[in-house]
Simulated scan of single mutants.
Amino acid sequence: MPEEFVSVRYIVEDVPASVEFYTTLLGFTLQQDAGAAFASVTRGNLRLLLSGEASSGARAMPDGRQPIPGGWNRILLLVSDINVEVERLRKAGLSFRNEVLKGVGGSQILLDDPSGNPIELFEPAH
């Protein structure tokens, strides 16, 4: 794996649907496709590992805990115009956890991927 990539793993319910979501709607490029078990997609230096239930990354821990999608840890994607992106993604039928929040550093909103994993869209303050 090239050292220039930062890798993040998301547990997903449907690998092909997740690949379509990230590549079609969020500008990722398919890097590796192992069918329903696993895929990796890249955007800039981010390598997102999409692990389905048949992947090693989704196996139960020795104490019985099972990795599942969702939670609050998230990737952050920079956007140049958050309102335009939100409108485009809402028209595509996507769900957001909140409305755009404006803060000192910029504006943000949380988008759910098809498995409920959060993605923060962030527009830096100008």
Rank of each mutant, 00 (worst) to 15 (best):
G64F: 12
R74C: 03
E120V: 06
P67Q: 01
E13R: 15
E4F: 14
F96T: 01
N73Y: 05
E87C: 01
Q31C: 06
A54R: 15
G93E: 01
G52F: 14
I109H: 00
I68D: 00
V84G: 02
G103R: 14
G93T: 00
P114C: 04
G27A: 11
F5C: 07
Y10R: 09
L50H: 11
E3A: 15
D81N: 15
S55E: 03
T24L: 11
T23V: 13
G27W: 08
S18A: 10
V19D: 07
L89Y: 03
E120L: 06
S51Y: 03
G57K: 09
A92R: 12
M61F: 13
G93W: 08
L49C: 08
L77V: 00
F96E: 04
I119Q: 03
D63M: 09
G106H: 12
E53C: 01
A54C: 01
M1R: 13
P118K: 07
D113L: 04
I68E: 13
V100T: 07
S55P: 01
T29D: 15
R90P: 03
P16N: 09
V19L: 07
L78T: 08
V79F: 12
A17S: 13
N73D: 10
A17V: 06
W72C: 02
I109E: 03
E20R: 09
S107R: 15
L76C: 10
R97N: 10
T23R: 07
P69I: 02
G103I: 04
G64Y: 08
R88K: 12
V12P: 13
I11Y: 10
R88H: 04
G103M: 10
S51C: 07
E13N: 15
S7Y: 04
G103K: 10
A125R: 10
L49R: 11
G52L: 11
A39R: 07
R47K: 11
E3R: 11
A17Y: 08
Q108R: 12
D33Q: 07
R97W: 10
H126L: 08
G70P: 01
G93M: 05
N45W: 03
F38I: 01
N83Y: 00
L111N: 02
L101A: 14
T29C: 06
E20K: 13
E85G: 00
V100W: 09
G105Q: 09
R65H: 04
G52K: 14
M1Y: 09
A92G: 02
E87N: 10
R88Q: 09
R97C: 08
R9C: 15
E53L: 07
F96R: 05
P2K: 14
S55V: 00
L110S: 04
M61C: 04
S51M: 06
A34E: 11
D33V: 07
V86P: 03
D112R: 11
I109D: 00
E13K: 15
S40I: 05
F28Y: 14
N83A: 12
V100A: 06
G93S: 08
S56C: 03
A54T: 06
D81H: 13
G103V: 05
G105D: 08
D113I: 04
A54M: 11
